[in-house]
Structure formats: structure tokens, C-alpha cells
């Protein structure tokens, strides 16, 4: 029933359940739907950003600009709302368009100039972060009615609730799964990650797809930025520092291979939830500093990378490919 290619995702989901159960047995009050919902509420923005990242990594690339893009989005939103006097309905489409365009521009550079995604998106990361300070070097607090509503609204399910951001993130999740598995764009992304050369020879639209992948990631980071703005109700150039690395970590823990071609959006969801559950465990534990999240994530990453390597080595052997030792 369970196929071999689903093993990494299954492992991640099993790990999440294990961690959640551990917390439930050790700490009273841990085992509740609200704790689970809080995981979503606190990590909605990370989930959205990591979904975009998943497409990029599956295509064989990387996007380091997403954290800075989130910061730029909070800053642009705050600047336009507070200083520019724009209404919320104009600000949100605008920042989403900026994110998508920014991503598409990086994708075009990567494809047409054949530059490594690492270096292009690194430049994008510095650029977006730097642009924040053109707007202001201080925090801009947002008091726009729509934004404060979004921050405070509770969507109730009986005794429990989630924020509107969670709904947005889950919609993105479902859409992304559909795109990845049921559209030509999604399948071409996997093909490019498997072998760009083969994808070209098979007659697939490689250029268009690669640019769209970075555009999608740019869009997701801008949307993540909007959700983050609801959460923080402020714009600040130091928001979401290092978020790109969290997104990469969540994606990899979710079973996506950094070499491209293999991975599931749902795995990334599980990866983000593991992130959240570690944070929650540390809060419940009470005495550990929040940096322990990083330590545990670090250890998990090591474990998962080694696991993936073993996994790919096994399938290499199976095809019996003769490699040349030069």
C-alpha cells in the first residue's frame, strides 16, 4: 500500500505524531485541539513561505530571498498604510504583485544568464532587506482597521478557534498540492528537478516553468509577509531574519531532496508542524531557552539529510548504474 517514494513523508508525519504524543503524556493541557490549532496560528506564515520554497527546491533550485521578501512586504504594507494612506484593499494586491515580480525577475536571471540560483537569490535577499530601510529604519506600527480585525478575529470551531491566516495558509496548501500533482506546470517542475537536460529534450517548456517557479515562491513569500503583518501588526526591516533557513529546513525535514525532483508539498506541511511542535514543547517544558528549537532542528536536519542520502544511495544501486571513478 505504502510506496517506497512516500517513505520520507511518512517518516516525517510519524515523527510529528510521536512528538505530539510525547508532549501529551508529559505535560497536562498539551493534548488538545487548541494546541494543535495554535501550531497553525503561529506558523501560518512559515507554512506559506515553505510551500513556495518546496516548488523551488523540487525544481532543483534554492530561494534565499524569502525572509527578506517577508520583511519587505511588512515594511511596504506598513509604509503604504500608515504613511501613504492607501486602503488595505489596494495594499495587499500591490505587495503580492511586487513579490511575484521580484521572484520572476530572479527566475529570469537564473534561467537566461545561467547563474546559480544560490547567488541570484542571495543578491535578492540583500536587495530586499536593504530596501526595507529606504522606507524606514524604525518599526512602523499598523493601526489600520482591516489589519487589526484580521489579527483579532477568531474563527470558532466549537470551543476552539483559528485565525483567518490559518484559513489562508490551508487554502494555499490545498492549491499547492493540486498544482504540484495535477497540472502540467507542477509536473514539469518535478521533471526539471529530475534532469533539466532531459526535460529540454522531452520538449517541455523549461524556461517558462523555471521563471514561474521563482515567481510562485516570490508570491508565496509576499503572501507570507501579508500574513506575518496580520500577526505582528507592524512593519520592520528586522522582521523574519533567517526565515529563509527555517523554510528550507522545514522543506527538507518534510522529505524534499535538496538535489531536486523529489518532494511533496504535504511533507513540507508536516515539516512546518514539527517546527511548531518543538517550539510548543519547549514552551511547555518551561526552563529551556527558545534557542533549543534551533538545536533540535539542527539535529533533525542532520538526521534527515543522512536518511535521504541512504535512501537515494539505495535506489542508485538498484538501477545498477556503472559510475566511472575518474
Amino acid at each position: 500500500m505504502l510506496k517506497r517514494q512516500h517513505l520520507p513523508v511518512a517518516a516525517t508525519i510519524a515523527l510529528f505524531i510521536l512528538m505530539f504524543m510525547t508532549g501529551s503524556f508529559r505535560y497536562t493541557g498539551f493534548f488538545s485541539a487548541q494546541v494543535l490549532f495554535n501550531l497553525l496560528i503561529d506558523n501560518a506564515f512559515l507554512l506559506i513561505v515553505a510551500i513556495g520554497m518546496t516548488f523551488v527546491i523540487v525544481s532543483g533550485g534554492i530561494d534565499l530571498s524569502v525572509g527578506s521578501m517577508v520583511a519587505l512586504t511588512t515594511m511596504l504594507s506598513a509604509g503604504l498604510l500608515q504613511q501613504g494612506g492607501w486602503p488595505a484593499w489596494a495594499v495587499i494586491p500591490f505587495v503580492l504583485a511586487v513579490g511575484a515580480l521580484f521572484g520572476a525577475a530572479m527566475g529570469a536571471l537564473i534561467h537566461y544568464f545561467k547563474i546559480q540560483p544560490f547567488i541570484v537569490t542571495l543578491a535578492g535577499m540583500f536587495l530586499a532587506r536593504g530596501l526595507c530601510y529606504l522606507i524606514s529604519i524604525n518599526t512602523i506600527t499598523i493601526d489600520n482597521g482591516f489589519y487589526t480585525d484580521m489579527a483579532q478575529t477568531k474563527i470558532r470551531f466549537g470551543d476552539y478557534f483559528v485565525s483567518p491566516s490559518v484559513i489562508i495558509a490551508l487554502v494555499v496548501l490545498v492549491l499547492a498540492i493540486y498544482i504540484a500533482h495535477y497540472t502540467r506546470f507542477g509536473r514539469t517542475t518535478y521533471a526539471i528537478g529530475g534532469s533539466e537536460q532531459s526535460a529540454l529534450l522531452m520538449g517541455l517548456p523549461v524556461a517558462r516553468t523555471k521563471i514561474m517557479v521563482y515567481m510562485f515562491s516570490g508570491f508565496c513569500s509576499a503572501l507570507g509577509g501579508v500574513v506575518f503583518t496580520f500577526y505582528m501588526l507592524s512593519g520592520y526591516g528586522l522582521h523574519a531574519v533567517g526565515l529563509e533557513l527555517d523554510a528550507i529546513a522545514a522543506t527538507v525535514i518534510g522529505g524534499t531532496l535538496l538535489t531536486g525532483g523529489v518532494g511533496y508539498v504535504f511533507g513540507t506541511f508536516a515539516g512546518v508542524m514539527i517546527y511548531g511542535v518543538i517550539q510548543t514543547l519547549i514552551v511547555f517544558q518551561g526552563t529551556l531557552s527558545s534557542w533549543w528549537t534551533r538545536i533540535i532542528i539542527g539535529i533533525l536536519l542532520f538526521a534527515f539529510i543522512v536518511l535521504q542520502r541512504l535512501f537515494t544511495m539505495r535506489s542508485d544501486r538498484k538501477t545498477g548504474s556503472v559510475e566511472k571513478m575518474a
Binding site: 509536473r187 514539469t188 518535478y190 521533471a191 528537478g193 529530475g194 534532469s195 537536460q197 532531459s198 526535460a199 529534450l201 522531452m202 517541455l204 525532483g261 523529489v262 538501477t319
Partner: peptide, 14 residues
Amino acid sequence: NLCTNLSVAENIYI
């Protein structure tokens, strides 16, 4: 020149 990460069916029809 195929994508070994995709299924057999996809490689034929992608």
C-alpha cells in the same frame, strides 16, 4: 534522456 524521478507513465506522457 528521461527523468528518473518521475513515474514510468509520466515519462511516456509528460
